[in-house]
């Protein structure tokens, strides 16, 4: 269900792109993944999410992508109240976001162009628009010349850049990157986050889960630290980590 702006808003106040209001999530079996999480992420922000394994990062991301539903509280993403949203509305929410996976998730029997175009076919884009936007997205990630290559002909870093092109080809408001540097070498990691940084500068909100504290410090964006299902730190600058 899309949340409509109310007239009670202060002029100039911008509705957050992501808002957690007292969110708790307990899985069947009793695992408490998140407890009473409150936070706001505004449009245009670049946010790192850090924390050790089991800290609740995955659940945090799953709630934003509406892969899971909160037991308590409300999650609002891009104007959609995910707590009251019906299952058939989920595709519309996901079309407002681009997702970058740690394991790239490229379709092996499709070439680079087709892998990126695939995301546009899903939203029903026309072939002319697909050709134009896919070429543009591939150029943005520096892979314009590899459009006809198959995924297994690319390095890990190149595959992740294809994944990034696929995430941004539909011009989403939000890009969720789940440890995008987890399977690439350190140099390539900086290149990938550098690309995300550039995309962010053009106005797209970036939410990136990472274990790499060097990246967080060097790119110096807001950092949310989770531990035991709670937000234990929320710093405006990663250098404070």
């Amino acid at each position: 269900m899309r949340v409509i702006n109310t007239n009670t808003q202060v002029p100039g106040y911008e509705q957050p792109l992501i808002e957690f209001r007292g969110v708790s999530k307990t899985y069947i079996g009793g695992t408490h993944a998140l407890s009473d999480v409150n936070l706001k992420i505004n449009k245009g922000e670049f946010v790192f999410v850090v924390g050790s394994s089991g800290a609740g990062k995955s659940t945090f991301m799953k709630l934003i992508m509406r892969e899971e539903k909160a037991n308590v509280g409300e999650v609002i993403v891009n104007g959609y109240n995910l707590s009251t949203m019906k299952r058939k509305q989920v595709p519309m929410l996901r079309r407002t976001m681009g997702i970058v996976f740690q394991d790239f998730r490229l379709i092996p029997n499709m070439n680079v162009f087709e892998n990126v175009a695939f995301a546009m076919h899903v939203v029903g884009a026309g072939s002319r628009k697909i050709r134009k936007e896919v070429s543009r997205a591939l150029a943005k990630v520096g892979l314009g010349h590899k459009a006809r290559s198959m995924p297994d002909e690319l390095s890990g870093g190149e595959q992740q850049r294809v994944g990034l092109a696929r995430a941004l080809v539909n011009a989403p408001d939000l890009i969720i990157a789940d440890e995008p540097t987890g399977n690439v070498d350190p140099n390539m990691s900086y290149e990938i986050v550098g690309l995300l940084d550039e995309i962010n500068k053009r106005g797209t909100t970036i939410l990136m889960v990472t274990h790499d504290h060097n990246l967080v410090r060097d790119f110096n964006h807001r950092v949310i630290m989770l531990d035991g299902g709670k937000i234990v730190a929320d710093n405006a600058e990663g250098s404070a980590l």
Binding site: P91, R94, R95, R105, I107, F118, V122
Partner: peptide, 16 residues
């Protein structure tokens, strides 16, 4: 499964 998971991630409807 991979293809379906990507489809769902980029907002494919069940009918799609």
């Amino acid at each position: 499964k991979l293809e379906i998971s990507i489809m769902k991630a980029v907002g494919a409807t069940d009918a799609f």
